[in-house]
Amino acid sequence: MNTQDLEKKFQDRIDAGEKIEPKDWMPEKYRKTHIRQISQHAHSEIVGMLPEGNWISRAPSLRRKVALLAKVQDEGGHGLYLYSAAETLGISRDELFNQLHTGKAKYSSIFNYPALTWADIGAIGWLVDGAAIINQVMLTRTSFGPYARAMVRICKEESFHQRQGYEILLTLCNGTEVQKAMAQDALNRWWWPSLMMFGPRDEESPNTAQSVKWKIKRKTNDELRQQFVDNTIPQAEILGITVPDPDLKWNEERGHYDFGAIDWSEFWNVVKGNGPCNKERLAARNAAWDNGAWVREAALAHSEKQAKREELKQAI
């Protein structure tokens, strides 16, 4: 079969709702897009551990500490599921890490913002995990089997992340004036970057059409963003704090909230590496990798020694 026929057959399978598995024939662009998207997603999970990890030792109670520890550990697990899914497409873990550590690969820009107060840990769980959940629920139905399966596993774990974050803010909002102000301040700083998590506006994202056709994405960036706003505003009302957007209002006719214009220059600036924490995050990942080298070396040396010992035993 020539490439054109193969591509037609491939599209027919996608249209029929079939999943694509790693060893199946696929267009080179489908493979490349997936390697890029899944590895960016994996990097985001791993780098996403940093802003929150910073607060584990300073959590205000044991209850909060075990929850945050479990959440950050989950994010590490999410990264590992996703790296495995990317590897099924023929790229090595080594190469994936290398792309992250050299700054060649991107990860979600939201993690280039600092977690300044304890309320930020609440806001991250509520808004950042909330936004991630909307994207990830969509991806459980994505066309590439290993990615979809990783997403199902991840979605099961995410719900607690968002709930623990919201509970932190609820407690602060029911506390003293100072505590409530802290919650409001966190919302003020995290709101717009959270909306940016869904990526550029539809008219600015030329790859969306192909991604929808291949069922990598099942909804556009703007659709997902709208869904997030509609979900989140009533939740803010329960907390008694408000999003920093004077243009936000319910649109009866559309059945959705209207919201103000996003400052995309800020988004692109952070993507290009000039966010408040880009350099710090990359340095932390590189340090973790380099400082862990002796552990990996020791583990391998140990396994080789064990294998030799086993061989010797059998020879006798």
Binding site: D74, L80, S84, R296, A299, S303
Partner: peptide
């Protein structure tokens, strides 16, 4: 799913942490 490990023992320990939390 899958994971990286130096030997079977480490693979079991990692599997426990990654897949059975």
């Amino acid at each position: 799913g899958s994971l990286h490990a130096a030997d079977a023992e480490m693979a079991l320990e990692n599997a426990r942490d990654v897949y059975t939390r």
